[in-house]
Write a protein that binds this DNA or RNA. Structure first.
Ligand code: FES
Ligand code: FES
Lengths: 144, 144
DNA sequence: ATAATAAAAGATAATTTTGTCCTATATTTA
DNA sequence: TAAATATAGGACAAAATTATCTTTTATTAT
């Protein structure tokens, strides 16, 4: 469904959100440990997220990643997915045709579009903070 | 969403269904032409579909691919998707964790599972014949 | 200022997916 | 039975994705 990059991106961002709510920064190493992801690959992804103002990165000692309270309250899953180019879900044809266009639909268009709209809604209505909260409140069963 | 193999698989099967309803076989070359797919890659996919009794292949002159009337009336998109190992959609965790388990859910599990169920339903309720019919009845706008 | 630290950036490598090629096998027609 | 045709199958190649490594840059604390 999502690319690996996107999966790591979401998991990393939730982890950052968890720390930011406590007013703490978190380093690359800690993030990779927490979400069990390859460290250098995760770094690349975090760079992209930082460039797109989804998270904030700081260099130097005491550096690391964090989210502003504004980011915490506004960033939705859709922002991460779009940034990490899983954007295809939003625009592509389900059967892989060059374009998806309701005026020139493929045989699966309307069925596919229906699912896609629901996925879109889900991503646009689910905030990172919300996911972080479900992790905090939930028992230890809620994995990252 | 789907792999290329899966996309080609669906498009090819619909094309075969279209011919089979007219009582005709269709060859690899014709299929690839019709759906604009790489010929040898498409051949591999058709082999898998034939092995899984989704289509029937015949060798030799006058050979080619077809669907039995039984296949035409029973094959659903889900059969193709499962065969071509896009099976992941059915079982995998949306965040890429090793397993997806409602008793040990990731932070996105319930939102993701909801979408997945709808996708599942769509695939299980959409027959190849139905797609072929929408192509036949529809104006030329319905692409493959 | 200097040393230590942590992310940024760019080059490189492994893996998976996608796509191609060549030979073998089965089937039909002459 | 022989020749022609079309799929099957296995080896191979290209491209994209995922993952790693090394060097640079910015920041903090001494
Ligand atoms: S044209 Fe294929 S999904 Fe829209
Ligand atoms: S555990 Fe992640 S989607 Fe079910």
């Amino acid at each position: 469904m999502f690319s690996k990059a996107c999966e790591y991106g979401i998991r990393a961002t939730v982890q950052i959100a968890l720390q930011s709510e406590k007013g703490l920064r978190i380093g690359l190493k800690e993030i990779s440990n927490a979400i069990d992801s390859p460290e250098p690959f995760t770094a690349k992804i975090l760079q992209q997220l930082a460039k797109n103002d989804i998270i904030i990165s700081s260099k130097g000692p005491t550096g690391g990643y964090e989210m502003s309270s504004n980011q915490l309250s506004t960033i939705m899953l859709s922002d991460i997915v779009k940034t990490l180019d899983c954007d295809l879900i939003y625009t592509g044809c389900g059967l892989g045709l060059a374009t998806c266009d309701a005026k020139n639909p493929c045989v699966l268009h309307f069925q596919f579009d229906d699912i896609r709209e629901q996925l879109k809604k889900m991503l646009e209505n689910t905030s990172v903070q919300q996911l972080a909260k479900s992790r905090e409140s939930g028992d230890t069963l809620l994995r990252l």
